[in-house]
Amino acid sequence: ALFGYILTFNEPEDPASLFDDFWQKMGEDYARDLSTRGTGTDAVVRALVLLDIEQRIQGGGKQLTDFNLSLSEADRALAEQVRAATVQANEPKEIQDELIPPPERAQLAESATMRLATLKPSQRAAYYAVLAAVACPKGQRIFFDAPGGTGKTYTFNTILAALRAKGLIVLAVASSGIAAILLELGRTFHSRFKCERLHPAANQTLNISAQTALAELLRRCHAIFWDEAAMGNKYHLEALDKTLRDFMDSNVPFGGKTIVLGGDFRQTLPIVRFASRAQILQVALTNSPLWAEFKSFKFEENMRIEGAREQLQRTGGVEVDAAQTLDRLEHFAKWLLRLGDGAE
């Protein structure tokens, strides 16, 4: 800080020589911190010091080149990468677990790009809608209406990869443990948000203190993805909404966070012990006042059928087993939809 002040307001005669004499002293804190992780070299510490000086003098309208100092693009990239890794290493464990280290983000971005090229039209529309929602200051609420086999989880993971590659914190949860395992960095809704599992009720909030690291994680996250949400209880959704509004000090739904739900209401609804059909429907997400906030995207292409169809095309339509498999999958998919719609 002092060296930046000297450069800005005192105009030393030979700032480059002054820097060469004292940069090691200025970088002692960096060197000490990096040595504990075995990543501290003179080149890294020098680059970090120059980057710090540059940021301080820019407020006074100055640049390093005004003082015969320079920071190469390679050194700048190295310093920014080390600084980001240092910041992440000092974060609470709850936040570290959700942040992708900077060196891994390029690979994750490449994976997201490759996945995007394979998405079907309805999946691609949902993908771009979520990315636009995350960029919106007040967020948006989105629901993927996705019958079995339409690639909901695949689309979820593609979007998660794209957002995390940008260094954003996005939380992935599911209503069941099996579904959570299929999500990248997935957790069950109950374990992640400490909600009342057995006896959810109206006007509850999540069991998270505002001063904890988990509360800070919720404040800093950009979006929350909830798979198999059709199994969820509306009181859990409302508790999440109340808690986020409180933590973000906002009256916007979910505190302005983007919420992405995925599921199929034709399948399992919330589990309520000893409840009648009417009581189960009463606690479904669609009976929450918050449901009006959600925009629905319907997934229409069945990925399992598409895979069988592509296999049949590769064999020129002569492979009997592939043709029979395709017929069975198409029949089952249509029957499942009719069953869920109450036509069977």
Rank of each mutant, 00 (worst) to 15 (best):
V252G: 00
G139C: 09
N233V: 00
V130Q: 05
D321C: 03
V318F: 11
T286S: 09
G307S: 10
D227C: 03
E110D: 12
L7R: 06
T188Q: 05
V173R: 06
G340F: 14
A292V: 15
K295T: 06
W226C: 01
L214M: 14
A180T: 03
F143I: 06
G262E: 11
L281P: 00
E238K: 06
L48D: 09
E306K: 15
I259S: 04
P101Q: 05
D145V: 01
F22E: 11
E91W: 13
K93I: 14
D246I: 10
G340A: 12
E91F: 13
S296V: 06
W23E: 03
W226L: 05
Q211L: 02
C221Q: 15
A223E: 09
R245A: 00
L163K: 03
D341R: 14
T325I: 05
I53G: 02
T65S: 15
R141L: 03
I159T: 05
I142W: 14
G177E: 15
L99Q: 10
T188K: 01
R314S: 03
F299A: 01
E238F: 04
Q107Y: 04
H222S: 13
P270I: 03
D52Y: 10
L285P: 00
I95P: 02
F156K: 01
A275T: 08
R277Q: 15
E330F: 04
R83H: 07
E11Y: 12
P253S: 01
A84Y: 04
G60A: 14
E228R: 04
A239D: 15
L18V: 00
P147T: 11
P92R: 06
Q24L: 10
R304G: 07
L64S: 08
G263L: 13
N203H: 14
N251C: 04
T212R: 05
N90F: 08
E216V: 00
G38C: 10
Q282N: 15
A106F: 04
T212V: 07
N68Y: 07
R83F: 08
L281V: 01
V260K: 07
L244V: 02
R314V: 02
G342N: 10
C195K: 00
Q88Y: 04
G263M: 14
F189L: 13
Q267K: 06
S296T: 14
L64N: 09
A223W: 09
P92Q: 11
L281N: 05
V82S: 02
E110C: 00
A213W: 15
T150A: 07
A112F: 09
E301C: 02
P92K: 04
G148H: 12
I95Y: 11
L7I: 08
L171R: 08
L337E: 15
F144M: 06
V49H: 09
L281D: 07
F189P: 00
N203Y: 12
N10I: 07
H222V: 01
W23P: 00
T39K: 13
E300N: 11
Q55Y: 10
K334C: 04
Y5H: 06
E228T: 05
A85K: 13
S72N: 08
R46S: 07
L48C: 12
R83S: 04
S276R: 11
E73W: 07
H190V: 03
Q267A: 04
I142C: 04
R338V: 01
Q279W: 01
A284L: 05
A308Y: 09
K234I: 02
G256T: 05
A210V: 15
V134M: 11
A165Y: 06
A230R: 08
T8S: 14
A165Q: 09
F193M: 06
